[in-house]
Amino acid sequence: MDRLYREAEVATEKYDGAKEQADRAARRLNALRDEAARRTDRLDSAREALGSAAAAQYRGGGIDPSVQLLLSSDPGRYLDNAAFAERVDSRQAAAVARVRAQLREIERLRGAARVELASLTSKQAELRRQKRTVTEKLSEARRLLSRLTGSQRAELTGAAGAGRTSRSAGRGVLGAVSASEAAAEAPDGRAAAAVAYAYGKLGSPYVWGATGPDAFDCSGLVQAAYHSAGVSLPRTTYAQIGAGRRVPRSALLPGDLVFFYSGVSHVGIYVGNGQMIHAPNPSAPVRLAPIDEMPFAGATRVV
């Protein structure tokens, strides 16, 4: 079951990352389409103005300018009008150049939109692949869980109840640090606020892909905790480990992010005394746990 949950969590982090990228691609695609639509409206207006000017020229043309000068009853006025017409022609040439530039820009935007659409389609396919992987791993884990005896299931989930009790029990179960003690030892107010948020979510269910407020996966809990403190963190464990200053295990303080496994596929929030709060897996809710229960991969202090 541990192996299946780890494999599901790896796929969950990949799913979370693909979803984040797909959401960004969708926003960029919509923005490109909106901008192309606005420029197309402006282009249509410019074309209409050029068409009107061309029609007026056609109606007023047909006689050679030198003949018009000879036949004019007021040659001076004719010459003034001709100079004005040349200026109009110059402005029209500039208008035509602007229309051509608008056409090129619209085509560029449409090309960029096609690229974003291809990217979005690729990310959506990746989402479907990772979702299938997560679903298969969790289904297999549930089948294993259903074959456990009642006492085995109690042993598996017993630490979760201990985590919930520790919210008000101070240094009771597992030698856990209380919420107030952890906040007091945090390096700054943001870390203290994130720790307080995490304590407030003890007992919340694990749901893969969830970022709260009522359910979480491991990186979703970390992101939500720091969001409550006004800090924007990336969505996945792979990105979160680079979102601050790396600190050695010996220098951990409450609020530090602690990462596990060689692929950095799990994360928790350190709260002191060798303990963290994390969202373990679907068989156990958000809980307090010792950081040495999993292979330690590194730690980051959010700055």
Rank of each mutant, 00 (worst) to 15 (best):
K19H: 08
P213W: 09
V195S: 09
A93S: 12
M276V: 04
A299N: 10
D89L: 14
G111F: 03
Y197R: 01
E107F: 11
R246A: 14
Y261L: 04
A192T: 06
D2L: 13
S178T: 00
T12V: 07
E140K: 08
S66W: 07
A94Q: 15
Y206F: 10
L109P: 02
L233C: 04
L71W: 08
L252C: 00
L109A: 06
D23S: 06
H266D: 03
Q240S: 01
V88G: 09
S52D: 14
A25K: 11
P290W: 09
L288D: 09
A299R: 10
K131D: 13
Y15V: 01
A297V: 12
N273H: 15
S204T: 12
R104N: 14
T40A: 14
A53M: 12
A243P: 05
S52N: 12
S250V: 00
N30Y: 09
I63N: 11
T165L: 15
K131C: 05
A31L: 06
M276L: 08
E105T: 14
Y78I: 05
S73N: 13
N281S: 14
L32C: 06
L109D: 04
A160W: 04
G189Y: 04
A54Y: 10
E9G: 05
A159K: 05
G268P: 11
L29W: 07
V173P: 14
A141D: 07
G61F: 02
A83F: 10
L174E: 10
A82I: 00
H278F: 03
T237N: 04
V207H: 04
A193P: 11
R190W: 09
D64R: 10
E7S: 05
A179P: 02
F296S: 04
R235Q: 05
Y261E: 03
Y78C: 08
V134L: 10
K137N: 15
L148P: 01
L145S: 06
A154K: 11
A118G: 09
R28A: 10
D188P: 08
L70Y: 07
G189D: 12
T133Q: 14
V173T: 11
Q223F: 09
D256A: 02
G230S: 07
G212L: 07
N273F: 02
D74F: 03
A289V: 09
W208L: 09
G60M: 14
L288P: 02
P75V: 05
A83E: 07
G242H: 10
A37F: 01
R164A: 12
G76C: 02
L79E: 07
S73Q: 14
A125P: 00
A25P: 06
F84V: 11
A186H: 02
S166Q: 12
A251C: 00
R98K: 15
L43V: 00
A53I: 08
V264P: 00
R249D: 07
S232V: 13
R129D: 11
V207R: 13
K123T: 02
E13Y: 07
Q21I: 08
